[in-house]
Design a protein around this nucleic acid. Structure first.
Lengths: 191, 191, 191, 191
DNA sequence: GATGAATGAGCCTTCATTCAT
DNA sequence: TATGAATGAAGGCTCATTCAT
């Protein structure tokens, strides 16, 4: 069998990119260093990705996909609103804590022109089931009649921010603190 | 008079930097363009700042200072906790809405290695009076016993995020929406 | 059969090269694109040609050969000088008009260091019968005693240039214009 | 006085470009080598020219200008047609022989996509007085009713081609040969 | 203080060529 | 024979910074 472009190499490039961008931002992740970290030659990257923008956006989308699938794990469309929300909320926190590198990368991407609007839109849509849940909650009168951006801002952003701070400081979040944080999140959006 | 002229130039450089970084991120703000926008020569920047990092960090700190002074405007240490919090909360929102350029710049800076940790720490400390207020609230049993990062995340970050989204979309926030947002913020941290 | 297939591939490579070089010049004809256009793998080219220079020079020589055989079609060594010259002159024009791609390629090659002097010399020699004819004409006192380069320049180059201009503009050359052009060519070299 | 971008440096860059392109074609004239030959740093070129295309086109236009002014030297609008034509014809030959480097460069440019159509058009227009002369000749019935491309092809292209061949071979053109060549040129276009 | 021409390291990307399969 | 993934040396260009004026 003819040698195939190995999935391994593609993965290595993506992983190297993730690591370098996380360490010092996009400006510290030149293609040459990515190649070196991936253990390949610079030109090889272009066998797997069209250019740097494509590489970054591909990584962004793959991580967003992974993030969404983790976030929705065990989520039951028909569960009560609060229960469903808690599932997703804890999933997301869990992701942020257990995959801090990926999480940090995704956050970096929200502020760089290297990531296209299309990619960002794609990322946003990955949480559609959560938005549907909120809408149901609003119809049931359980959730405040705020737009999804507001709801996101009040119930998820804080936790994401907190996770980042804790990760950076190397501290641990106690189960109790997490419970309180969830209650705060819920309080913020419930009617 | 000479002194005046000199101050002008410094200001012009800072303003040009703000504008360029905001438009397209750090990578679109080369020193040469900053100089051009400021109406001076490239070399002149180095009479006022050691290098690019110094320029960015200086701007960051100055804006943080301005932000803090606006945030604390009219704030009375001895007012009731909720009242005091509301004052600051509305001040910050006001700042985000009326100085979107500066606000956007500060947020950009939170994700770039160009801004040193020392600068970030400096920025955080500028809101000390708010942290003191929270502590008093906790002693009075009015505010949840969360760390300041948590409290910040739940009561201020959401509003900041919302303001950004609205600014970007060019929409206006109704007084009513603002009121609801404040209540959500307060609900999130009050006991 | 296998032999057939192999010849096919060689031909496909040469044809792909011709097409690509003609469209945008040598710099737009990378080996990878040639391979793609020929429907083969990049490495395969090197089974048929030593390297790019060899490929280009081979194509150049083959086209020069084809050109010469067309140019001399129906040419009779013993015909009167003017008659013989007219035959070749019209053949060449015909070639330039009916095979513009090949003609354009050959002209491109006259200005690139990719084609060796040896190849160019080879190309020049392919018109030996015409040079012999001119020499006979000079001995008969019918043709000006100019060197072959001069004669070529005055009687053939102009027509080639004109054909190129017309091809580029997509216009047609009328039979009358062709006749006039031939007379001008003849006038230029006849005594 | 503040140091100015020296005209010298600009000239050095143009001269280096001319030399390198002439030696081995465009592909042998990388910006880095041009800079080295000009005795400056690579980045400096970009202070004088926007990019490589701009550099090449600028050089092309400057040489065309120089060429045109040499070609029209001593040309008198009101002289008899043949006389006027001879003046220009000999001027052009003189230019080709005395400035072979420049001439060779201009010819290279006619076959590269690096030179824009606009530049080529510009170059063509520089000989307008000659075209006017031809038109007058046609009105007077002295010159064949051919389009300017044809006239150019028959009366100037050959001489240009010859000059190139002689230059390349390092031979000299005798005054007699030149006279004959002129007569051939005139014969080709006169009625 | 102020200038701006000059630098040169470094970036992204292309492409002729090789070689294990 | 044929493949095509892999290479790595260039190439064009940018930009933070310096320094002679």
């Amino acid at each position: 069998m003819v040698r195939q472009k190995t999935e391994d190499k593609r993965e290595a490039i993506l992983r190297a990119t993730l690591g370098l961008v996380n360490n010092n931002g996009f400006h510290a992740a030149p293609m040459s260093k990515i190649a070196a970290d991936a253990g390949i030659s610079a030109g090889t990257i272009y066998l797997y990705f069209q250019n740097k923008e494509d590489l970054i956006n591909t990584l962004y989308r793959e991580l967003k996909n992974k993030f969404a699938s983790k976030a929705l794990q065990g989520f039951n469309q028909e569960a009560p609103v609060k229960k469903g929300f808690e599932t997703i909320w804890r999933n997301i926190l869990q992701y942020k804590l257990s995959e801090p590198e990926e999480a940090a990368f995704l956050e970096q991407c929200d502020n760089t022109p290297m990531v296209t609007d299309a990619s960002r839109e794609f990322g946003f849509k990955s949480l559609q089931p959560l938005f549907d849940l909120w809408e149901r909650g609003q119809q049931e009168g359980i959730i405040k009649p705020l737009c999804r951006h507001m709801l996101f801002a009040f119930s998820l952003f804080p936790m994401i921010y907190v996770a980042r701070v804790y990760i950076k400081a190397g501290k641990e979040l106690s189960a109790e603190a997490i419970n309180m944080a969830f209650e705060a999140s819920w309080d913020a959006i419930k009617t």
